[in-house]
Amino acid sequence: MQQFINGLSLGSSYALLGIGVTLVWGVLGILTFAHAQTMTIGAYAALITLDRGYPVIVGVIAGLVVAGLFSGLMDLALFTPLRRKRAPEFAFVIVTIGVSQISDAFEASRTRSQTLPFPRKGFPVEPLTLLGRNVPRLSLVMLVTSVIVMAMLGYWLHRTKSGTAVRAVAYSRDTGELLGINSKWIFASCFFISGTLAALAGIFLAASSGQLSHSSNDAILLLAFAVIVLGGMGSIRGAIVGGLLLGLVSVYATVYVSSVFREAVAMLTILVVLVVRPSGLFGEKATTRV
């Protein structure tokens, strides 16, 4: 039970990341290698705010806003001109790698490459007794928050006007523009939301481990990509299920095999799924990404 909750909560942060990547990928058709750094920046912003003694909720909001702005401004400043020139997709990928390296170097120099303790005061870290067992309360909060966020995202994309406009632009930017939709803002807002999702995952992970460094999330980028491949490239639903599954597998692998094999077992799961279903769990046609 406890491992199950732990797995789901780790999985929900993978899912949040996966959704964030899927959201911009669904719209733009590119992979954002800057995602791990966005996550780290969000967590740092929260850390700095919390260190100043602000309450947890303020720290979380600061993290979300800073990471969202980082991501949204990256789109406006770098990708908008590239899109205007109809640059090839690969150019975008290179730019995201560049952004990620630069911000990594910046964070490394700012923190002198040290691992900082992440203030957990105010986070719901003490265990909770559920059905006679101890369950880490933070894991539960993480899981519930993620589920709420994912439900909100689904509602937004499918039931609201602006969400529908995102899906319209995702399907065809030209058609969206012909219908009077300002695609530039659609892109920027998707990047913003993607950034906030990354920050949420980053803060959760930092709070559960109690520490943060500039390279904390490097390995996670690969996992985020793995999540979306597992889920079926570009499907939001797939990213959620893929993330949860990967979280469970990672936790059970740590408990029953060894933490050394944690990533390896996760990757093995992906290989097995892909061999059986090459298009992933929820693989759809490439045209219906969101």
Partner: peptide
């Protein structure tokens, strides 16, 4: 546009709603 450019994953109603964006 040429070729209609229907937003295939969106419903007919949503296509119309987007027309009135």
């Amino acid at each position: 546009p040429e070729g209609r450019a229907i937003l295939a994953p969106l419903s007919v109603k949503q296509n119309l709603q987007m027309g009135g964006y």
